[in-house]
């Protein structure tokens, strides 16, 4: 979804709301504070931040990360004897409601067919997905904003060349390009390589958006002023233009992260992403989709985790958009209603 760029129409509403915020007591408030305050007031986004943080903390502390041991004692690579058909021991229904009481148990998410602890496997997959998504989001955002800003600022042949390269990448379906690159990068067995490579193909949308913003920003007086004072092109781009497009960039970076989670899981599902013996949420679903009728927990846990992570990141993006674009925020909604 695009972050609407019709700033002019929003100006009056934004001013009205900013005035209201200022009246609330304190004096001068910076733009950044206003955005942060609007974001903190967005309930769905704040709940999503909490959910995402909880999942990330659980995934990274439980089985440990990068050699640091975690508090969970089982490994995602060690096979063991299958206990009770590998059924999950997690129980959330208290005894007085007819359940088995609140219990974590030996294998909270159950065991897979070789007896590996499924909680450890899912946590490892979540780690991989979050790592890949954040790296992809960062790489894509950096490339996309730089390409877009350079193309928009210099225009002329630089713009033509950069935009034709963007078209070149867009015309190959994203999944296809990602699958081919994933196949090349997957051989190394390092998810960071895979993530970097995926970042190299997902920057195109942002580049177009930033270019559009920069094309209109570069005509403004502050850019002329900077040019008149003899600022170099790099200074104008990085100190004057890009900070003014931070709204578009932040919102799209969030959606890029959500998209990257789905892309990575799809690739791993198809067999071109993370490979066994490592674990990934997409890989787990592809391995156990036929077990759905007999051992449904092998299917539900990774799927629900993907859904929870992607959904919370998408809601965070929505909250950011509302914060940067006050026309759509809750306070403006009430004031903006003209028709009964």
């Amino acid at each position: 979804m695009p972050a609407g760029g019709e700033a002019a129409a929003a100006a009056s509403l934004a001013e009205a709301e900013d005035a209201a915020l200022r009246l609330r007591g304190d004096t001068a408030t910076s733009q950044g504070r206003l955005v942060a305050r609007r974001f903190l007031a967005h309930k769905a986004a704040m709940a999503s931040v909490a959910v995402f943080a909880a999942i990330a903390v659980l995934a990274f502390t439980s089985i440990g990360f990068a050699g640091i041991p975690g508090w969970w004692d089982k490994s995602y690579t060690l096979a063991a004897t299958v206990v009770d058909g590998g059924r999950p021991t997690l129980s959330l229904v208290p005894g007085w409601l007819g359940g088995e009481g609140l219990r974590w148990g030996e294998h909270p998410f159950g065991q897979d067919s070789t007896g590996k602890d499924y909680f450890a496997l899912v946590m490892r997959g979540t780690q991989q997905s979050i790592t890949i998504a954040l790296v992809v989001g960062t790489v894509a955002t950096v490339i996309g904003s730089v390409v877009g800003a350079v193309a928009g600022y210099f225009r002329g042949w630089v713009d033509s060349v950069l935009m034709r390269i963007t078209d070149l990448v867009i015309v190959i379906p994203l999944l296809v390009l990602a699958a081919v690159l994933g196949k090349i990068a997957g051989g190394s067995g390092n998810v960071l390589v895979l993530a970097l490579v995926l970042g190299l193909v997902t920057w195109t949308g942002l580049a177009r958006l930033v270019r559009g913003e920069v094309l209109s920003l570069r005509e403004r007086e502050f850019v002329s002023a900077a040019e008149a004072m003899g600022a170099r092109a790099s200074r104008i781009i990085f100190r004057h233009l890009l900070p003014n497009t931070v709204g578009v960039i932040a919102v799209n970076a969030t959606f890029a992260v959500a998209g990257a989670i789905l892309l990575e899981t799809s690739l791993s599902y198809l067999g071109f992403g993370v490979r066994a013996p490592d674990s990934s949420l997409g890989l787990l679903i592809s391995q156990y989709q036929s077990a759905f009728t007999t051992r449904p927990w092998l299917f539900w846990w990774p799927g629900m985790t993907i859904l929870a992570v992607a959904l919370s990141v998408n809601f965070i993006g929505d909250g950011l958009r509302d914060a940067f674009d006050p026309r759509q925020s809750r306070a403006a909604r009430r004031k903006g209603r003209t028709r009964p």
Binding site: T265, I285, T293, F299, A310, L311
Partner: peptide
């Protein structure tokens, strides 16, 4: 938002079932 965040291959298995 839910549909945006839905992994296709996972939802497919649910639909089948």
């Amino acid at each position: 938002f839910l549909f945006f965040s839905l992994p296709v291959f996972w939802a497919a298995v649910l639909l089948k079932e």
